[in-house]
């Protein structure tokens, strides 16, 4: 019983991290049709900035988090202008794969040059190191924080896409780019804003998830497959799809780690093949955004 509860909490927390990072990938993929294999590297950059801000510059966690997100966005925006813009569109998938793998390698090398190959931590504030009591159960405060943050991200994204002007234009452009352009929606600025949103989410997830997906230079390569899998199952551009797929993967994977013999990942990827076989655009495509 206790393990089941532990699995549930850890699994949901892990799933939320996967969600926050993957949904950023999902949004850019949905709108710009770009397979951004460097997305994991963006998350890693966010994590490293936060780590440096907290340990090197002595900022509190509450300040390091937003600083990391903003700086990551600022650092990646020039990439959109210089590199990504040339490879948008689904006809370019090979160029996309190569360019974003190349970018990933460069970022991995750069991070290692700046911070070295050792594991980096983002020290948690005291508030997040203890446990919180929910009814009779105690759960680690950090896990609770991550779960709440993931839920808030989901709500905020829903609000952004369903209720704001930006969201309306974004959905219009996803549905029919030519029509959106004809209606005077400035796709260039929309792409830039969406790209910023994507890398901001990556950075947020990278910082929040540093306890679960430890920061080291190979982070960028190690976890990108997970993020891609979430997007493929959730459907490009679908927020709730990403959330459902991420939670499923998080729980399955965590359960696999606790329970022996574990075939968690195996089942996830088998499910992925079956799902993509049956629904080539993702299981949840078309329900939202």
């Amino acid at each position: 019983m206790e393990t089941m509860f532990g699995i549930a909490v850890d699994g949901v927390a892990y799933g939320m991290i996967l969600f926050i990072i993957s949904v950023g990938l999902s949004v850019t993929l949905g709108l710009m049709r770009v397979v951004n294999l460097a997305h994991g590297a963006f998350a890693m950059v966010g994590g490293y900035i936060a780590s440096y801000a907290a340990q090197g510059a002595g900022l509190p966690y509450a300040a390091a988090l937003p600083v990391a997100v903003v700086l990551t966005v600022l650092a990646t925006l020039p990439l959109e202008r210089l590199l990504y813009r040339r490879i948008y569109g689904s006809a370019n998938e090979l160029a996309q794969v190569l360019l974003t793998i190349g970018l990933t390698f460069v970022i991995v090398a750069g991070i290692n040059y700046l911070f070295g190959p050792t594991l980096k931590r983002i020290p948690l504030p005291e508030l997040l190191t203890g446990t919180v009591q929910i009814g009779s159960k105690a759960i680690p405060a950090h896990r609770a924080f991550v779960i709440v943050a993931g839920g808030l991200t989901l709500l905020a994204l829903w609000w952004l896409l369903e209720r704001t002007d930006f969201g309306i234009r974004l959905r219009a452009a996803v549905d029919d780019p030519a029509m959106a352009a004809a209606l005077g929606i400035r796709t260039e600025r929309l792409y830039l804003a969406t790209f910023a949103l994507g890398s901001g989410l990556a950075a947020l997830g990278g910082v929040l998830g540093a306890e679960l997906l430890p920061l080291e230079p190979y982070y960028a390569i190690r976890y990108i497959v997970l993020f891609l899998a979430v997007v493929a199952v959730g459907g490009a551009g679908s927020i709730f799809g990403s959330a459902a797929a991420a939670l499923a993967l998080g729980i399955v994977d965590t359960a696999g780690k606790y329970l022996i013999p574990s075939f968690g990942e195996f089942f996830f990827y088998a499910a992925l093949i079956l799902i993509l076989f049956r629904w080539p655009y993702g299981f949840f495509k078309g329900r939202t955004a």
């Binding site: 190569l98 360019l99 793998i101 190349g102 970018l103 990933t104 390698f105 460069v106 970022i107 991995v108 090398a109 750069g110 290692n112 040059y113 190959p117 230079p217």
Partner: peptide
């Protein structure tokens, strides 16, 4: 890592 940076730029 030098190697990775080099090959990345190359790509």
């Amino acid at each position: 890592f030098h190697w990775m940076g080099f090959i990345g730029l190359f790509l």
